[in-house]
Amino acid sequence: MTITNTAKCILNQVPIFVHAPVNILITELQNQLALMQAKLDVLQEDKVEMQARIDHLLAELKLSKSQKYGKKSEKAPRGTFNETEQHKSTEPPKHHKKGKQTLAAHLALPLIWHIQVSAVH
């Protein structure tokens, strides 16, 4: 069997793997297909796991928000806003008495006399 010049030109332009026996090519493609299918299976399993994790985290977030901002959140005791609230006494505030009040004994002011001396001529 002789190869014509036209066939030689065509064979030179075709990639080398076409010259390989067809059985080897099919086996190689089947191996690549099996490898890609295995990778696809792993990625699909990862996707299912990630979606389950996302769903779980969204459920936790929803529960946390309902506990924080729900109807009962107003009734639940919270931390104090500032230090003055921490030291606040449980007694009701005393109302100021109306009218003139005397100073406490420990706050009494000393009595100071001012004498005015006038010059006599």
Rank of each mutant, 00 (worst) to 15 (best):
79 G>M: 08
52 A>K: 14
40 L>W: 04
23 N>P: 00
10 I>R: 02
7 A>Y: 11
37 Q>C: 07
93 P>V: 02
24 I>G: 07
2 T>N: 04
91 E>F: 05
4 T>Q: 00
31 N>R: 02
56 H>N: 13
116 Q>N: 10
82 N>S: 11
41 D>L: 02
39 K>F: 08
117 V>G: 00
10 I>C: 08
54 I>G: 01
85 E>T: 01
113 W>V: 09
37 Q>Y: 06
36 M>K: 00
32 Q>A: 06
14 V>N: 01
15 P>I: 04
13 Q>M: 09
23 N>C: 09
110 P>R: 00
76 A>I: 13
56 H>F: 01
59 A>D: 05
62 K>N: 13
74 E>S: 14
60 E>H: 12
45 E>R: 02
100 K>C: 10
75 K>D: 10
50 M>V: 08
45 E>N: 10
109 L>G: 08
84 T>R: 15
46 D>S: 05
115 I>A: 07
115 I>E: 08
44 Q>G: 00
120 V>G: 04
42 V>W: 01
32 Q>S: 03
114 H>W: 03
33 L>A: 07
64 S>R: 15
34 A>C: 01
116 Q>H: 11
116 Q>T: 15
51 Q>V: 06
102 T>Q: 13
12 N>V: 08
58 L>F: 10
72 K>P: 00
74 E>K: 13
2 T>G: 03
77 P>D: 09
1 M>T: 11
60 E>L: 15
45 E>Q: 14
49 E>I: 08
33 L>S: 10
87 H>C: 04
79 G>V: 04
79 G>Y: 00
73 S>Y: 06
5 N>F: 13
36 M>Q: 09
29 L>Y: 07
68 K>V: 11
4 T>N: 12
27 T>Y: 13
37 Q>I: 04
104 A>T: 12
1 M>E: 08
116 Q>E: 07
64 S>D: 08
73 S>N: 04
12 N>H: 14
111 L>R: 06
88 K>R: 12
41 D>M: 00
120 V>M: 11
84 T>S: 09
69 Y>Q: 01
66 S>H: 12
59 A>H: 05
65 K>W: 15
35 L>Y: 07
91 E>A: 06
82 N>L: 03
51 Q>H: 01
75 K>T: 12
69 Y>H: 14
41 D>R: 01
21 P>I: 15
61 L>M: 09
14 V>R: 02
100 K>R: 15
3 I>Y: 11
3 I>D: 03
74 E>A: 15
43 L>R: 07
50 M>E: 03
65 K>F: 09
119 A>T: 11
83 E>Y: 09
19 H>A: 15
74 E>W: 11
10 I>E: 07
48 V>E: 02
26 I>D: 05
76 A>Q: 12
72 K>G: 03
22 V>L: 13
96 H>Y: 13
108 A>R: 04
103 L>A: 15
50 M>W: 10
79 G>E: 10
120 V>A: 15
3 I>T: 07
21 P>A: 15
92 P>N: 05
28 E>W: 03
